[in-house]
């Protein structure tokens, strides 16, 4: 019964939201090479194509080491994978390089979007220091973190945003260890606590919401904007390539990955979940959680609820 209501709701609302976004972007030139070597069903690729369509040609794009770098967005040999200026920062200097570019364009009096599309490793782990520094200095850059919850380009190793109990090749499941023993770093909230002009979470299942957030980020002129984009990885998370969007949607519907935005640290939810689903429905379709017992699922449910409640207590 719940599922039917849900389907009706989908048909009534989200369908038209998709339509509006689709009409808006379908005739915009795709600024990414049509053939880049992402895995089948790559979530990060969806996010990048939409972002470039929203920001347009007057953009300088940073693609650090990671999946998007590995698939050829910065090109190979004497070629480029994008139709905007694109460069390959170091894994740990993304925000600093962006800041340098933006400062010089400011100096020249030229307006340009300086945009990073970086994975969670370069964002939450090794590149965190310079991102935090850039946020504190109010560098006017736009930073999108595509979070596929691990080092996927190098073959599925754990990162700071890998969730509790998730399997990766460096947090294997065996007799004494059952996936990652620690909870994930709450990266978007940490960024919000920098009290920068704009921070948001986004999901590739809710592209209309994502697009709105990109536009808000583009408008920021007095500091850093950060978007934490949830991008499931069929290869690393162990699910079939057609389920990328569905899994993203489930993560939102179970409050595993709630959608919100924060202006100068003030948090507001952007997607009300009318029919909250148990987190089990999300976990059971993602292969990296296939080892979980009922007790472990209960534990994760509790952690998800706690994190959501904490967020709610911070939200307006």
């Amino acid at each position: 019964m719940g599922e039917t209501i849900d389907k009706i709701k989908w048909l009534l609302t989200d369908k038209y939201a998709n339509k509006a976004l689709e009409e808006e972007i379908r005739d915009i030139e795709d600024l990414l090479s049509p053939g880049v070597s992402t895995c089948l069903g790559c979530g990060a690729e969806v996010g990048l194509r939409i972002a470039l369509k929203i920001f347009g040609k007057n953009t300088i794009l940073a693609i650090p080491p990671g999946c998007m770098g590995g698939v050829g967005v910065v090109g190979y040999g004497l070629t480029t994978g994008a139709k905007v200026p694109v460069f390959f920062p170091l894994l740990d200097n993304i925000a600093s390089m962006l800041a340098g570019i933006k400062r010089q364009f400011n100096r020249k009096g030229e307006k340009v979007y300086v945009l990073a599309y970086a994975g969670d490793g370069g964002t939450a782990d090794v590149g965190f220091q310079c991102l935090s520094g850039a946020a504190e200095r109010d560098e006017n850059i736009i930073y999108i973190c595509y979070d596929n919850e691990g080092y996927m380009n190098t073959g599925i190793q754990r990162s700071g945003t890998t969730p509790y109990k998730a399997w990766t090749t460096t947090t294997p499941v065996g007799e004494s260890r059952r996936g990652k023993p620690q909870v994930s770093k709450n990266m978007p909230l940490i960024m919000a606590m920098h009290e920068v002009p704009y921070v948001a979470t986004a999901s590739i299942a809710y592209l209309e919401d994502y697009a709105t957030k990109l536009k808000k980020a583009a408008k920021v002129e007095d500091g850093l904007s950060y978007i934490h984009l949830f991008t499931p990885c069929p290869t690393g998370w162990r699910f079939s390539t057609d389920k990328t969007i569905e899994i993203s949607r489930l993560a939102v519907e179970t409050n595993f990955f709630p959608l919100w935005e924060a202006k100068y640290g003030k948090i507001r939810f952007t997607k009300k979940i009318w029919f909250k689903k148990p987190v089990k429905e999300y976990l059971k379709v993602v292969g990296k959680y296939s080892h979980l017992t009922e007790e472990e699922i209960e534990e994760i449910q509790k952690l998800v609820d706690e994190r959501y409640d904490m967020l709610k207590s911070l939200a307006r």
């Binding site: 040609k57 770098g69 050829g72 070629t79 994978g81 200026p85 390959f88």
Partner: peptide, 8 residues
């Protein structure tokens, strides 16, 4: 628009 430092 060019790319800076493609995989080489």
């Amino acid at each position: 628009p060019i790319s800076v430092d493609p995989l080489t």
